[in-house]
Computed example of a mutant assay.
Amino acid sequence: MNIVILSRNTQLYSTERLIEEGLKRGHKVEVIDPLKCDIIIEKEKPTIFYKDRYLNYVDAIIPRIGASVTFYGCAVVRQFEMMGVFTIVTSGAIQRSRDKLRSLQRLSKAGIGMPKTVFTNYSRDVKEVIEHVGGTPVIIKLLEGTQGLGVVLAETKSAAESVLEAFNGLQARVIVQEFIKEAKGADLRALVVDGQVVGAMKRQGKEGEFRSNLHRGGSAEIIKLNHDELKLAMNASKALNLPVCGVDMLQSARGPLLLEVNSTPGLEGIEIATGRNIAKSIIRFIEKNAK
């Protein structure tokens, strides 16, 4: 089988592991930079040209599309879809997951628990926004933020009002969420493949840091999810039509609460923390579904 990984960096851990496991299982694996692909659109013959050849031999793709190149990256994924190539996540699902507000709305409709969240169109009444989520402390997130960037913990009313007024002045779109104190700076990451949880870890922020992202110095350890946590992860995957994804959640007094769903989760932290071969699970998922 000819498998293409859409990635801009062949040296990334996740890309290297997917190549390794694909080759081990007898497939041809190639890394292609989606930004260097030419999309050729013509009647009944959609094609992609890359460097010196047409990519008409590809059986399956693994999108590793960074947030900064979502538009063009998804256009390339969509073109492969038009060519009948199997993709582990569709272009539409990637775009939905990258829109924090849209994905939270879909997840809420699906009955998935999450921290109380408010979004407004640059409201001048910031005090009311804060009260809608139960008062301070509150989490304020840029809609376009990734890896913990653009996330602020405002512990007092005056701090929250100042941050919201500053973001509103810059016309930066944000959501305001209640702060889950009992989570104690930790969250859970469940890795879903083929709609099933194949590994889970607990990420703990470093001392004095409320964000648990490993990119920001957090630590991780393997954890066994309880029934409600497993159910939340699988339901979130289904609601966003993401058979392969990372689901982040908080442990709270009222049960697990969803933070976000990542359509291109990194494999390094979770493979090291759990000892699970996640890359192999992804390749096997392709084998099961690609024609």
Rank of each mutant, 00 (worst) to 15 (best):
A60S: 10
G66C: 12
G246S: 07
G148D: 04
T15I: 12
S252C: 00
G205S: 07
M82D: 15
V129E: 06
L18S: 01
I48Y: 01
R106I: 15
V247G: 14
R106L: 15
Y50E: 03
P265C: 09
G185Q: 11
L191S: 13
G26S: 09
A239T: 01
K157I: 09
N289D: 06
I62Y: 01
A220G: 06
L259R: 01
S97D: 08
D59A: 04
T117A: 05
M249E: 09
P115C: 06
L257N: 02
K224N: 15
L104W: 01
P137Q: 11
Q11C: 14
T90G: 14
V151K: 05
M1T: 09
L214V: 12
G217T: 05
G195K: 10
G22E: 04
L214D: 13
V77L: 04
N241S: 10
L164K: 01
Q105K: 14
P46R: 00
F119K: 00
D125I: 05
T47V: 13
I32V: 09
V85D: 00
R216V: 11
R53L: 03
N226R: 01
I3W: 03
I282S: 10
I3Q: 02
K280P: 14
T87F: 00
T274A: 12
A160D: 02
E20M: 07
A190R: 11
